[in-house]
Amino acid sequence: MTTSETKHETPPRALNARRAVSWVLGLPPAYYVLAILIAVAPLVSATLINPNYWFVILKQSAPLGIAVLAQSLVMRVRSIDLSVSGVFAFAIYFASSGFLKNYPPYVTVLMPIVVGLAVGLVNGVLVAYVRASAVISTLSVSAILIGVVQYMSAGRAPGSTPSWLRVLTNGNIHGLSYSVIVWLGVTVLVSLAFRYLIVGRYFRAVGDNPRAAETTGIPLARTIFVSHTLAGFLTGIAALVQVSALAVGTIKPGFDTFMNALAATILGGVTFGVDRGGVAGPFVAVVAFSFLFAMLTVFGIQEPGKLIVQGGIIALAAIIYGARTGRV
């Protein structure tokens, strides 16, 4: 009996079962974390399984969810964007400081997106064409943006955000906030772009092996430039959603935005050049993170505990993934 015959005789049901197990084991850690949390939730508090509570969690997660989508775009091509905090600070300050109150409302809506796009373009040029380090160049851009905001505000908190803009977060369709619908829409669009457009294949090829991609004719620099530009555009949308979620502006949106975005991207199965989570992975990761923090709050765990849990989860997810895929 030859080996091929032995293989041929393997029952299809056993093969399917093996494939299913392999598929489940190949899922990004975010899915496991979310499944565990959902399983444990009823034991912790009845509130945690209330559908309305989930709508609130989704609403609170929307800005981070879109920022994660942006971060995952650049991480797919082995780059990084540390300018998220800068774009958020800039957009929130200009929307809440009254600078735009004499302009039509669409200017306030477009401002964060234009800022994000401009930052994305600058990052793209610096990283892809000038070949500057992505860590340093995007960090510098963020420092400049935050510095400009702090200088203009002289360290004082700005005013309140336009009340009409808050409809983006507070308005809803059957309980689902408009901001969540924007998040879902953007996620679907990016997913479709990856599935049907050539740029998706370019991203995957560059992330997998940049040198091989370039040798086979894929425009390496242009692909990385596009990823940064798109990431900037999406970060701008995330900043707009964040502005709509705030009643009062702030000049310190915090390093947490970037930290959480990076953590959720990794948990969602997208790391430097590794794209096993697709677009759904980071989405699930954001929900899992928000749910986890909500649960920790129920347990009375404060900021230090949350930081330790967050760090532990990132490390564990990365180690499990590293062991399975060879490199995270």
Binding site: L262, A263, P304, I308, G311, I314, A315, A318, I319, V328
Partner: peptide, 18 residues
């Protein structure tokens, strides 16, 4: 364990800060 340096040290950064 083949974890990317930024990811690994970001995790320990959170733990250390906590």
């Amino acid at each position: 364990l083949n974890v990317h340096p930024i990811i690994m040290t970001l995790a320990t950064m959170g733990i250390g800060q906590g």
